[in-house]
Design a protein around this nucleic acid. Structure first.
Lengths: 234, 234, 234, 234
DNA sequence: GATGAATGAGTTTTCATTCAT
DNA sequence: CATGAATGAAAACTCATTCAT
């Protein structure tokens, strides 16, 4: 997340300016990387979008890849905020998962840029013209990784509690994350967001073999009666 | 698919050489694009990998993008061969889907390069430094699109036959395709291939609300008794 | 001039074919060099225009420059035919010059390509991307050189006979050639050809200080009475 | 003319450096284009000659053609300075023409490069490997055009005043310009510059049918008595 | 002898990165 | 510190020329 949010009042005026500038670069980079891709984005583009001087970039980042890394790190915080369960300890895993799914679908609409970028990095060791230097945190913070990690504990808990069928929690989490990711693909038929949430939840709860107790927790019950019934079909 | 397979006996020796060279370029490009990414791959790389001269490339393709297109076209045929159901007309949809999934998992191991590339293109309008020229077939032949299209009819049929719960077949197919795609992500813990197939099938059949008649068709029954029971658990 | 005209009946069929092909290349090259320039013309262009195979070119010329040379040589013959005085020995120099001028103006309309090309070579040691190898006859056969050489003897004779004022015949010939050349410049206002001839003749005869005996020989007397009188104005 | 001359005292040091660099590129380009031709000159050549980095070129000009254009524009100013009559209003046209001619001959020795280049562009629509983009001012500022335009008003005035025989002033100006241009052709026998001026003046004044009042104005009278007499010979 | 496939040297152009102001 | 001018490494692409068929 933007550093600025971490130190609202802190430090000297000059320090605050440094932070503001850095955040401007990161935000610009994130938007541009997301929309045009890493390679197609030049440092000049970023500086321009950040409304800062060109050479200034290098006072904040040693190279182009560093800003990508920063985008990831800041983005990870944001993702975590969106994805990590803040549910009370006793929340039913199926509900936790459903909520996470809903938050994710909303996130897609808000942050498609960032998500697409993180996805991209997950897929190839080379984002830019040459192999990424960063064994650095990077890819582990790629979208599917983060998402998968957010899902896995829920799944594990669900299995432990008997809400979900038992199985390879890691792999299942990944498959669910993949299903989520599929929503990122540019799509002509963009369906109603709520309907997507409902179908997704239904999909994943079924896939996990959620039992009836779990099923009733699917969100947006008013709109999707038919489907809810389908989920609890037996 | 490589042109060479289309004209096994054909033509003059020189014509065959042309085809062999073209295929060499396409194969080299596919492997390199897949492993290093489009941008990180130079024409020189491709030529080198194809063991042909640099200038020779331009006798076969007008530019770098053209070879990407060729990779896609040839790849699409290959994908189709792997994914399109060749099941007899009466095959149960759940079986068809399970078989498709199995074929896909096998495919990942064989053709990770190509699949990764197609996925990449699906995600970003900018594969290269600048937006792709090709509105050309391209992206519609991206992996998730092709996969999704292969799955959708099966899902529809399953719904029609009452094997699967009814729902938005298009979206569900996409989610399933996404789950498949998640297996493409470079993964340190590479699990046993058969186990992956089993879990995937179980996952998607459940997710589709496959009823008991469908469930018994899950492949590799010997190894995964426990899970099978979970599927048909109710 | 095309070799073909030199050996109309000669030699074997195969020999005649060789000659025909060579001429086709030279003609194609001349037209293309003239219209697009030496550099902008590729060997492939020439071969295509000659309706001959690409590699065939190299069976007739060792390199691209050689065909330029050939164009020059063949062109020189053609130029000589057009420019060299074939007047009977006793012809008045002013008449000879006038006739040459007329022939030249006509030539411009017929062979602008070739003339432009020869002019170009006259101006720069580098026609193509790199310095011309040919110290070979080349530049001495450039248009102004040839033209100048055609004019000079006439001028000298005129001076000797007292028709023209005496002076530096070589330099004056060059100036006259320059005046001729100016007609080659692409020109929006293309005037009537006959009028150009008349003005040119008038111009050069005056410039040489042609006396009254000479002046009456200006061609196209009917159309240009006024001007003729101006020439013989004193 | 070089921008530098326009802002002698101007601006910051950095601004002056920018201008100095631009001028260095233009001067280098002019010299190289003139001597080797546009095509044979690489950007690297220009940068080297300008003693600047290679990439620096592109900070000043978007492409190779742009620097050609700049050479033309700067050159045009220089030419205008040399060629446009600055004679007092009442100056005899023959004198004005003679002076122009003299200035031109001197110019040839100083600026052969530029003049050759402008001539070249006048002749061919394709200076580079492909047709010039610039319909831009360019070709109208080609040497013969500029020269011709400088001469024409003098000729017209001369005709109006009765110093010159009447005729097609535009065409005659062009012929005279052509005679001038002929002096640009690389010439082994380089004659004495003064003698060339004298012969040229004599040539053109005669060619225009300058009457006796005009004739006495031929410059350098001391050295060329014989010729002067020839001009005023009748 | 004719052909065109193969080739790589040479050119333009882009852009990350350095550095002087 | 902020800035943008300078720079050259790297990449795409063209085309003259060689050579196998």
């Amino acid at each position: 997340m933007p550093i600025s949010t971490l130190m609202p009042e802190s430090a000297s005026r000059i320090e605050r300016k440094r932070i503001r500038n850095r955040d401007a670069f990161v935000a610009a980079a994130r938007s541009l990387f997301g929309s045009k891709g890493f390679d197609a984005t030049t440092i000049a583009d970023i500086a321009e979008a950040a409304d800062l001087g060109f050479g200034t970039f290098y006072r904040y980042f040693p190279d182009k890849e560093a800003v990508l890394e920063a985008v990831f790190e800041d983005g990870k915080d944001e993702l975590d905020a969106a994805l990590l369960s803040t549910e009370p300890a006793g929340t039913a895993p199926s509900l936790a998962l459903a909520r996470l799914s809903e938050r994710f679908v909303r996130l897609i609409h808000r942050d498609r840029d960032l998500l697409g970028l993180m996805w991209q990095v997950a897929m190839s060791k080379t984002v830019g013209r040459r192999p990424l230097k960063f064994e650095r945190p990077g890819p582990e913070q790629s979208l599917p990784a983060v998402l998968s990690k957010a899902i896995q504990p829920i799944v594990e808990q669900g299995m432990a509690r008997g809400e979900f069928a038992t199985g390879d929690a890691r792999l299942l989490s990944r498959l669910i994350a993949g299903a989520h990711m599929s929503l990122l693909i540019p799509n002509t038929h963009d369906v109603d967001e709520d309907a997507v949430v409902a179908t997704l939840c239904e999909f994943e709860l079924r896939a996990l073999g959620a039992n009836e107790r779990a099923a009733v927790l699917i969100p947006n019950p008013k709109k999707h009666t038919a489907r809810r019934r389908a989920v609890g079909r037996h």
